[in-house]
Design a protein around this nucleic acid. Structure first.
Lengths: 199, 199
DNA sequence: GTCTATAGCCTGATAGAC
DNA sequence: GTCTATCAGGCTATAGAC
């Protein structure tokens, strides 16, 4: 039916490569590393992907596919703005807490992504979700800059997970501080102050 | 006087290596890359540092030295809490805006740092500054968790710079959104809502 | 679709002359 | 303190058998 012959191996390779690239980055992972874990030779990898770059891009596409849809839906659900804000924070936090590969690869792309990869990230992964977030931001603070507030709303969540490995060495750092519910409540309460001020 | 013979070259190597490691990460930079830029042979590098790992650690130590002192001082200056909060946000934003190598290396260490490197980061680089931030957080929200709020206060600033390469592809993204003053005012206003609620 | 073998290059690191 | 030369091994990628 389709032009290409999609075998199980083709996808299996990506599912093995994704956590490897997340943990060690593009230049930290070799084709042999991936091949060994898949259980085939490095040469066989080249039957499925023409080169390492293509394999990496295919892995990113799979790792990033449809990940932000829950966030978009949460920010746009019906109901009072408090509920939408809470649903947004919860779904964003959930994504970060439950999919560490996604989060890590996103961080790595921010550091290492070239122009075209960043454009893809902005358009296909976060485009619609970010638009929904700016709409929410406009309601939260009609006089402010929605882009700035949307970025803040995202950073507020992400940074709690980004700093997880180092926080246990910082004063007051506890295990519960990476807990989904704890982060959700904290960030929601912080952002909800804007509403309290307005009403 | 000192046991080791500190030549200019020893420091020059680090100042060349720091931006390279920031841009391409540990595994993306070779000893030959560094040597070429310094203008010496790769073998000469090994006269100054026993191996690549040691050179990298020395580069981190130099890149991170005394960077957080301004933040500590700002958070602990005398005056009303509004002023201290503003001074903190401004000094943190300044550091992130003016020292991209520092910021990038910090992000990379969060991704790739092993236990001992993260401990060093927590103790020597951010230890005192983070303590000052938790004290500020306690004043801002006496009923909240100061560790959580301190993390939020940092993430709120950092994320605006972390996302700089991708924001121009997102709706509403403008050049001014990485501007020092714009970010400072935005983050300060956001955090100040907590004060308004309390007073 | 997978293998072995290998080309050609880059890697970290060392030896020894100057 | 820097050099050239080199080692041993890893890297991406290809050739060709099965």
């Amino acid at each position: 039916m389709s032009k290409e012959n999609h075998t199980d191996t083709r996808v299996l390779i990506l599912d093995i490569a994704i956590p490897l690239f997340a943990e060690q980055g593009f230049s930290g992972v070799s084709m042999r590393n991936i091949a060994n874990k898949v259980g085939i030779s490095a040469a066989a990898l080249y039957h499925h992907y023409p080169d390492k770059q293509s394999l990496y891009l295919a892995a990113m596409e799979r790792a990033f596919a449809d990940k932000a849809e829950g966030i978009t839906a949460a920010a746009r659900q019906s109901g009072p703005i408090e509920d939408r804000l809470y649903a947004y924070v919860k779904s964003f936090t959930k994504l970060m807490a439950n999919d560490p590969n996604f989060r890590t690869l996103f961080q790595r792309e921010l550091l290492d992504g070239d122009e075209s990869r960043l454009q893809l990230l902005a358009d296909k992964v976060f485009g619609e979700a970010f638009k929904a977030m700016t709409e929410l931001a406009s309601e939260l603070d009609p006089d402010g800059d929605p882009h700035l507030l949307a970025i803040s709303m995202a950073g507020l969540v992400l940074f709690h997970f980004e700093t997880e490995p180092v926080r246990r060495f910082l004063p007051g750092g506890l295990k519960k501080h990476s807990n989904l519910k704890v982060v959700t409540e904290h960030v929601y309460n912080l952002l909800a102050h804007m509403l309290i001020k307005k009403t």
